[in-house]
C-alpha cells in the first residue's frame, strides 16, 4: 500500500482552486520568490518535485493545489510512499526538490548523506489514536485493551515510523500488547479496521480523521508522549532551488499550518 498517489502530476488544478487565488496571493506574498509571483502563463522555473510520507497525502495535496494556484502554469509533482523507501530513492539519485519525512530517523539518514539543503524543519506532529470499527463492536476503551489476547489487534511493524511510535506509547504505559499482525504501514492497519477484520489498531490521529465515518477514533492518555515529528527539507542539487524554497515556505506558513491542523496534525 505504498504511495496511494504515486508521482501524481498535478496540472490543471489551478482552475479548480481559482476561487482561492486572491486570498492565497495575500497569504503568500511575503514568502514567495518574486519571479514566481510575477510570472504569467507557463513557467517551468516554478515547477517542484516533492517526495512525502504517505500520511501526508491529503494535506500536501491540498497545499500543492494552492501552490499551483499561486504560480500559474507551475506543476507540483508529488510522490507519496513510506519515508524509508523515499529516502532510499533520494540517496539513489532521484531528482527531488523537497522531501517531507514522517520520521526524524529517516530524515537524519538523508542529512547524514549530505543531501539536505539547510537544516530540516519540523513542520507538524502526529499523535496516535486507537482506531476501531464503527460502533466499536469489541468495546475497546483504552490502551490496556490492546493487551487482550481475545481481541484481534493490529499494530504497525516496529520497523516503520508508526510502529516505532506505538512501541514508545506502549512502553511508557507499561503495556505488553498482543497484536495479531504487524502491518507494514499505517494505511494497511487502517484498512483492516475499516473492513472490521481487527477490533482495534494503533494508528495516527490524521488517519482516523481522513477515514471519516469508516472508523472511530479513541483518544488515550499518554498519546502526547509519543509525538511523531514530521520534518521537511529542500534537497541538495534541486533543479529549482527557488521553487523548492517557496514550496517549503508555503508548508511552513499560516496557510500550510491551517491545512495541516485541519487534517489533525499538531503544529510542529
Amino acid at each position: 500500500m505504498r504511495g496511494g498517489r504515486s508521482a501524481a502530476t498535478r496540472t490543471g488544478a489551478a482552475a479548480a482552486a481559482a476561487a482561492g487565488v486572491a486570498l492565497l496571493l495575500a497569504g503568500c506574498a511575503g514568502t514567495a520568490p518574486g519571479d514566481a509571483m510575477t510570472s504569467t502563463g507557463t513557467d517551468t522555473s516554478a515547477d517542484v518535485t516533492v517526495y512525502a510520507a504517505a500520511s501526508l497525502t491529503e494535506s500536501l495535496g491540498r497545499i500543492a493545489d494552492r501552490y499551483e494556484a499561486a504560480n500559474p502554469g507551475a506543476t507540483v509533482t508529488l510522490n507519496f510512499a513510506g519515508s524509508s523507501a523515499l529516502a532510499q530513492q533520494i540517496m539513489s539519485g532521484a531528482p527531488v526538490d523537497v522531501f517531507a519525512s514522517a520520521s526524524a530517523d529517516t530524515m537524519r539518514v538523508v542529512v547524514d548523506a549530505g543531501l539536505a539543503d539547510g537544516d530540516p524543519v519540523v513542520f507538524a506532529g502526529n499523535t496516535l489514536e486507537i482506531a476501531v470499527p464503527p460502533g466499536n463492536p469489541a468495546g475497546v476503551s483504552g490502551l490496556t485493551d490492546l493487551a487482550n489476547t481475545a481481541l484481534t489487534i493490529a499494530l504497525c511493524a516496529p520497523e516503520v515510523p508508526c510502529g516505532a511510535a506505538s512501541t514508545r506509547v506502549l512502553d511508557a504505559a507499561g503495556i505488553t500488547a498482543a497484536p495479531d499482525t504487524l502491518e507494514t504501514d499505517v494505511r494497511a492497519a487502517l484498512t483492516k479496521v475499516e473492513l472490521g477484520e481487527v477490533d482495534a489498531a494503533l494508528v495516527y490521529r490524521t488517519d482516523v480523521l481522513a477515514a471519516g465515518d469508516a472508523v472511530e477514533g479513541i483518544e488515550f492518555a499518554g498519546a502526547a508522549d509519543a509525538v511523531t515529528d514530521y520534518a521537511i527539507t529542500r534537497v541538495m542539487d534541486a533543479a529549482n532551488p527557488a521553487a523548492a524554497a517557496a514550496f517549503v515556505d508555503l508548508v511552513l506558513g499560516d496557510d500550510g499550518r491551517r491545512v495541516l491542523a485541519d487534517a489533525g496534525f499538531t503544529n510542529g
Binding site: S84, E159, V160, D180, T181, L182, T184
Partner: peptide
C-alpha cells in the same frame, strides 16, 4: 494474512520490513 513473526511473516515480508530499518 497480515504480518506476525512465526505465524504469517514469510521471507518476502521479512525482507520488505527489514528494508525499512
Amino acid at each position: 494474512a497480515g504480518n506476525f513473526p512465526g505465524v504469517t511473516q514469510t521471507m518476502p515480508l521479512s525482507a520488505y520490513l527489514a528494508l525499512q530499518s
